[in-house]
Simulated assay, not measured.
Amino acid sequence: MPRKRPGALRAEQSLRAVRGLPPERIHGLSARTSVVIDRVETFSGDYYVHPGATDRALRRYRAFLRPPGRRPLYPQDAECSCRGCSFDDVRHARDVLEKVLRQLPPRPRAQLGRHVRALDAGYVGRTLPDPFAADRQWRPDLWWRRRLAG
């Protein structure tokens, strides 16, 4: 029976797991929650949920809401759909956060959920509803996709 080469096995694992380092701590979350999120990201079968995706999604969501003022914000579509460029669209970042939230155990889900809910409130306050979202969006069932985009 053929077996995988050692290099191929190591490539499948995250570098942190190979080196025995703890995962990077996500800003605003406890170390325990960060470890659980890293485990979920590592073993997720979703293409867009990979180690570091939750931290990147939270940073992107915060950055979108950061500009001061009261002017409405309009999410922009990403230029391409690869893992890196897809986070240019804040709606995709929110999609990733939702996927991770669904896979977490209760306590880490509650802690991450509090941060996401606070960001959601800012998102609702700074974006405008799209009355034609059912016709334009491929996922009109998600409330964050029913907002006007640029």
Rank of each mutant, 00 (worst) to 15 (best):
A17V: 07
V18S: 10
V18I: 15
R19T: 08
R19M: 13
G20Q: 10
G20N: 07
G20F: 07
P22Y: 10
P22V: 10
P22I: 06
P23Q: 02
P23W: 05
E24Y: 08
E24Q: 10
E24T: 13
R25W: 01
R25V: 12
R25Y: 03
G28N: 02
G28C: 05
L29E: 10
L29V: 07
L29M: 09
S30P: 08
S30I: 06
S30W: 05
A31K: 09
R32W: 07
R32C: 03
T33H: 01
V35G: 03
V35S: 03
V36P: 00
I37C: 11
R39N: 11
R39E: 14
V40E: 07
V40K: 06
V40F: 04
T42W: 11
G45F: 03
G45R: 11
Y48E: 13
Y48Q: 10
V49T: 11
V49S: 09
H50F: 11
H50L: 07
P51G: 08
G52M: 14
G52R: 14
A53Q: 04
A53T: 05
R56C: 06
R56Q: 10
A57W: 13
L58D: 09
L58T: 13
R59P: 00
Y61N: 05
F64V: 01
F64K: 01
L65Y: 13
R66F: 06
R66H: 11
P67L: 04
P68Y: 00
P68N: 01
G69T: 09
R70D: 11
P72R: 12
L73D: 11
Y74L: 08
Y74T: 05
Y74W: 09
Y74F: 14
P75E: 15
P75G: 14
Q76N: 00
C80V: 14
S81I: 07
S81C: 13
R83N: 03
R83G: 03
R83E: 06
G84R: 04
C85W: 05
S86H: 11
S86M: 10
S86R: 09
D88A: 02
D88E: 07
D88Y: 03
D88K: 00
D88Q: 04
D88W: 02
D89W: 02
D89C: 08
A93T: 04
R94H: 11
V96I: 05
L97E: 02
E98F: 12
K99S: 14
K99R: 14
V100P: 15
V100K: 10
V100S: 11
L101S: 04
L101G: 05
Q103I: 03
L104D: 01
L104W: 02
L104E: 02
L104S: 06
P105F: 02
P105W: 02
P106G: 01
R107I: 05
P108T: 07
R109K: 14
A110K: 15
A110Q: 15
Q111W: 04
L112D: 14
L112N: 13
G113I: 01
R114C: 00
H115G: 03
V116H: 14
V116P: 09
R117Q: 12
A118D: 13
L119C: 07
L119F: 04
L119S: 11
D120P: 04
D120M: 10
Y123P: 04
Y123C: 02
V124Y: 00
V124W: 06
V124F: 00
G125P: 04
G125Y: 09
